[in-house]
Design a protein around this nucleic acid. Structure first.
Lengths: 211, 211, 211, 211
DNA sequence: TATTAATCGAGACGGTACGTCCGGTCTTCCA
DNA sequence: TGGAAGACCGGACGTACCGTCTCGATTAATA
C-alpha cells in the first residue's frame, strides 16, 4: 500500500502516539498562502500564520523545519490540483494553449513576487528556488519542450532550432514584460508564438521577388 | 560653470549647515554593495554596513530613510559609470553587443537575486522595483528598441513585428534560462539573435519548392 | 494551601505555557539593583542589565514594559525581606529603633538618589513615586504613627500634638540634612527624638522660677 | 577693577568679535526653565530647548558646556530676584515668615522634582546638587540658623538645642510630607514652629502638679 | 575702511540607548 | 505523542538624544 502519491509527503511515517490533525495541515498551508499573497515572503511572519491557522508557531515547527520549508510546502499545496492541458498535436494551438495557461497562473496576485522571492533567496534559502524549479517550472518547461520536439519529429521546425532557447524565449518574454512593468497584452500567447514562428526579419527571397 | 559633475547628485542644493562628507557617502554605498553581494538583501544588516563604512547606523539613517532606500541608492551608485556600448547601424552586431553587455552585467554574483528582491518586494517596497525599472532596465530596453526601430526604418524588419515583444523575447530568454537553472551558453547572444531573426519554423516556400 | 509564598507575586496565575525561569527573575532584579547602585538610574542601561543577568533585553521586556517598571520591581524586590523592628511600648526606645533602622536603610549607596529619581520623574513616570510611597514610605510612616498614637493613648503626649507633622519632622530632618549635604551624626536618632520631645524653647516656668 | 560681581558670570571677558545677543541668553534660560518644569530634567532635550528659544543646540553649547550646566544656570537665573524677607528679632514671627517664604517657593510646579533631579544625579552630575546647595539651600538654611542663633543669644532657647538639627526639622518636615504625598496644610509654618517650640511630650511638671 | 574675531544658524557626525519585532528553540501542561 | 501556550536567545530595525564638529553668513571692534 503506497501512501505517498506525489513524492512530497513530509509526514509519511505512520508512527505511534496521537496522530496529527489533518485539518491543521490544511489550515496552516492555506493561512501561509494567504499571508504570502498579502504580505510577501519577508513580511509574512510565522506568528501571524499561526494565529490565522488558529494554532501556534511550535506546532508549525513540528511539521516544517523552517519558514522557507513551510513556504515551499504551501506552494506545492497550491499546485496540488494543477493540471496541464492535454496536447493535440497542433503545434501552434498547443503552444498557445500552454502559454495561456501559464499567463493565467501568473495573473494571480503574487505569482511573480513569489518567483522573485525564490530567486532573491537563492543564496540563503536555495530550497525555495529548487522546489520551484522542480515542481513548478520544470513541468511546464518539459511540456513545452515536448511540444516542440514532436513538431521537430513531424519536420515542422527549422533544422538548427535550439529548442531550450525557444522555450526560454516564449516564457521569458512574459518575465521581461512583467519585470519591465509593461502590461501583458491579452493576446500575448498568440503574439509571441507567431513572432517566434516567423522570425522578425523581412523575408529576403520574397523581397527580392518583389524587386 | 557646471556644479554637478557626475549626473546623479542627491544633495544638489548647496544649502546651509555642515556639508555631508562625500567620502562617507562613498564608503556607505560601497559597503552596502559589498554586503549586498556577500549576504543578500535579507541578511545584510545596517549595523554591518555601518561598521564596514566606519560610521554608525544613525548617520546612515540621516541619508536614507530605510534599508530599502539605501539599497536603491547603492544600486544606482553601482551603475554610475554604466555606459551602454555605442550603436554601429549593423542590426545583428548591435543586438549581439548589447545582449553580451547585459549578459556580463548579470553574471556578477548578485545581479539576479537583486532583481528577484525587487520583484519580491513589489508590494511592500515598491521603490526598489521602480528604481530598477527606471534606472536599470529602461535604459537597456530603450536601447534595444531603438536598434530595432532603426532596422525597421532601414526596412530590414518584417512589417508586423512587435518590437516591444521582440525585446522581451531577447532579454527574457536570459531570465527564463536563469530562473530555470539552465546554464547560460557562452554564445547566448548570437544564438538568441539568430533564432529571433529567422524564426523557428521550417521555411515553407523553400519546403514547398523542395517537394 | 498557599500559592504565594513571598507576598509580591507578579505572575500569580499558574497559567499554561512554559513557565518563567524563576532564577532569571532573580538574576535580572539583582543585576538591576547592582547597576542601579553603581551607575544610577539614568546611566543604567537595559543592555548592561541583560548582559549581567546572562539574558537579553527582549527577555527583560517580556517581564517589564519599561525601564521604570523594571526599576520599580527591583526596588520592591530589594525590600522583599524588609522587616520593621517590633514595638516594645517604650515611646522613646521605639522611635529611636525605627529611626535607626531608617538611617541604616538610607545609608546604602543609592537610596537617596533613588528617592530623588522617583521625585524627579513624578510627572513623567508617576509609577515610580507611587510604588515608593506605597511600599517603602508608607509602611514606616504608619509604624511611626502607631508608635505615637499608642503614646497618646497612654497619655504621654501633649494634647495638641499633630502626629503626622511629628512623623514628618522626625523623618524629614534626615532628608533635610542629606539634601543640604550635612553629615548625618551617628546618634541622629537619639538627637532628633530628644529634641522633638522637649522642644527647643527654654522652659518658661523653670526660667521664671530662676528669675 | 572687578569684573565679576557675583561669582557666576560665565561671559565676563569682554573680548573682540561679535558680542553675544543678550536676548538669546534670556530666551534660552527661560525656555530651559519652562521645559524643565514641563518635562523634567531627563525628558528635557536640548533640541527642544533650542527650538523653543528660536536658536540651535550649537549656540547653547557655546554658552554652557553641558545639559547640567545649562540647567544650573537656568535655576540660578530663576532665583536672580530671590530676596529673603528681613528679620524682625521676633523668633516665632521670623521663623514663620521664612518658612512661609519657603513654602511659597516650593509651591511652584516643579520645585520639588527639581530638587529630586539634583539628588538623583548626585553621582553622575554632582554640579547640580552642588549649585543647589550653594545657591538655593544654603542661603535659607543660613538665615534660619541665624534666627535661632539670635534667639539663643537672647537666651530664648533651651541650652542643649542642636540648631542645625532644628533647622533640618523645620525644613525637613516639608520634604517628608511632600515625598509621602501628604497635602501640606496652609498653616504648616505656624504648626511646625509651634510644635518644635513646645515639643510633643506632655509637660511632666504640670502633669505632676495636676496629680 | 579693511581686517579680524567672534557669534549665530544649520545641520552632519559618533556614540549610545530604547523599545519593537521576528525566527527558531525550548519547556511545560493537557488531551 | 500531538497540540496549545508561551518563555527564551539572538539579532535587526528605526528612533531619540547628547555632545562635537564643520560650514556659511553676520556683526562689531580694531588696525
Amino acid at each position: 500500500m503506497v501512501k505517498q502519491e506525489n513524492g512530497i509527503d513530509l509526514h509519511a511515517t505512520r508512527s505511534r502516539g496521537r496522530p496529527r490533525q489533518a485539518v491543521l495541515d490544511q489550515r496552516i498551508l492555506e493561512a501561509t498562502l494567504r499571508l504570502l499573497a498579502e504580505e510577501g515572503y519577508a513580511r509574512m511572519s510565522l506568528d501571524d500564520i499561526a494565529t490565522a491557522a488558529h494554532t501556534t508557531r511550535a506546532t508549525i515547527y513540528l511539521r516544517y523545519p523552517s519558514k522557507a520549508a513551510l513556504t515551499v510546502a504551501a506552494i506545492l499545496y497550491a499546485r496540488r490540483s494543477f493540471v496541464l492541458p492535454p496536447l493535440t498535436g497542433d503545434l501552434r494551438h498547443d503552444l498557445v494553449v500552454h502559454l495561456r495557461h501559464f499567463q493565467e497562473t501568473m495573473a494571480t496576485p503574487y505569482s511573480l513576487p513569489l518567483i522573485g522571492t525564490a530567486v532573491a533567496e537563492e543564496h540563503t534559502t536555495p530550497e525555495l528556488l529548487t522546489v520551484f524549479r522542480e515542481h513548478v517550472i520544470a513541468s511546464r518547461r518539459q511540456m513545452l519542450r515536448s511540444i516542440l520536439l514532436q513538431a521537430r519529429s513531424r519536420n515542422e521546425l527549422a533544422p538548427l532550432v535550439d529548442i531550450d532557447l525557444a522555450v526560454a524565449q516564449l516564457i521569458g518574454s512574459y518575465y521581461a514584460l512583467a519585470i519591465a512593468g509593461d502590461p501583458i497584452p491579452p493576446d500575448w500567447p498568440e503574439r509571441v508564438v507567431d513572432q517566434i514562428f516567423a522570425g522578425i526579419l523581412r523575408d529576403v527571397s520574397l523581397h527580392n521577388q518583389g524587386v
